[in-house]
Design a protein around this nucleic acid. Structure first.
Ligand SMILES: [Mn+2]
Ligand SMILES: [Mn+2]
Ligand SMILES: [Mn+2]
Ligand SMILES: [Mn+2]
Lengths: 220, 220
DNA sequence: AATTTAATTTAGACAAAACTAAATATTTGT
DNA sequence: ACAAATATTTAGTTTTGTCTAAATTAAATT
């Protein structure tokens, strides 16, 4: 697999987000900042190599072989991201570009040893799950805090309402995407929720709980 | 700079071993396992970019710009080798191939932080010096035991042959890089050498003496 | 259902980096 | 000095991955 082939496979994987979905030529071209005609060429080659299912004008989907290849690249990408943040002290938003290069280094031994060295992490600095060597990983499911039972644990990954007011509230209360959060108690009366976030306990209203997504880690 | 250009620059640097020497097309082709005609093409391109001085049929040498570029790649290569051995527990002879890939990762921040993380090492696991960010490095005054007179004292800093067999021999005989060593006597008949290493006297064959580098403290 | 619009593929071109075979320059040996 | 051997360059191809422009197919609108 060339670097370019790997990036295509990974993009197709991300666009189909684990599903069997058929991905369009234009969607891939947009995502990769390339031209649809280039995508057609590459997709034909990947089809020859049994990495994707492709029929003219009908879009493309990963074969099982392609899916496993994608997961192996995603595994490398996210392990390197952990390395950059945990060991080299990069900020979480600086790592993606470098990991985009490092994910293409060819050495099974390297990635095994890196995994061990990092303590076999299961998520990257953004909270995305890291597939195992065999391509198994905990599929992440994001849900609103208001929809989750007491005791749930997860990582803040998104907002439902992205109004300035809501984002300002998050800033003021030192809540950032990527923060770990646990639900301690829910008040039936008003739907307000006690949470522990970054080792700090606080109470949030139902309006807040209905606007903040948690990524829950469950077995796939 | 493309990956390929970088490998050419680095090869030219190593073949001229720091000197102003003019390097032949065939020497580069041999070293890189490629064809002389490919070298000619690349050398023309590097000349366009002011990385090398080139005149038809007269060989090639690095410009100052080319030399600094080479040193930056060597720096990355050797820092990654330290990382692989010190942090990931690779053996000496396993690191070069992976470092050959890692040296091409583009990120100044990455290599700065890696350098800090490793404790600003000045040599790689084979005892070769690591240039600073500015391209300055201590030119190694290391010599093979077989080339040194009786009475020489020094520190083991590198190996010539990094084969598994040789590294295993060193392990078995508790010889590590950093150990102090003194040459007691040399047998003319077979070139074997008596040494004192870590207050322990032993005799090593000419083959061993020809593969172990000392950094000299006193020469007498 | 016909027409317009959008998506996709094809055809032809290009740049990078490699190759082979042939031409040319340099070096070596007598 | 000159022929033979060797080194180097040139010319022409190949592969990979990209592009533009044109043709074709599919989808959306009237
Ligand atoms: Mn990333
Ligand atoms: Mn990538
Ligand atoms: Mn090396
Ligand atoms: Mn390399």
């Amino acid at each position: 697999m060339t670097l370019s082939e790997e990036d295509y496979i990974k993009t197709i994987y991300h666009l189909s987000s684990g599903q069997e979905e058929s991905i369009s030529t234009n969607a891939i071209a947009d995502q990769m900042a390339t031209k649809p005609s280039s995508v057609t060429d590459m997709v034909k080659k990947l089809s020859e190599k049994n990495m994707v299912n492709y029929k003219k004008y009908k879009g493309v989907s990963l074969t099982e072989k392609g899916r496993l290849t994608a997961l192996s690249i995603v595994r490398k990408h996210r392990l390197w991201e952990v390395f950059l943040v945990d060991k080299l002290d990069f900020a979480w938003d600086e790592v993606h570009e470098v990991a985009e290069q490092l994910e293409h280094i060819k050495s099974d031994k390297l990635i095994d040893k890196l995994d061990t060295y990092l303590g076999n992490p299961r998520v990257n600095p953004h909270g995305d799950p890291i597939p195992s060597k065999e391509g198994v990983f905990k599929k992440s499911v994001k849900k609103l805090i208001s929809e989750l039972p007491v005791g749930s644990k997860g990582v803040c990954v998104g907002v439902n309402d992205s109004s300035v007011a809501f984002l300002k509230f998050l800033d003021k209360n030192k809540i950032s995407l990527g923060d770990s959060l646990r639900i301690i108690e829910r008040e039936d009366f008003d739907g307000s929720v006690s949470i522990v976030i970054n080792d700090r306990e606080m109470r949030i209203s139902d309006q807040i709980a209905s606007n903040l997504f948690l990524e829950i880690l469950e077995n796939k």
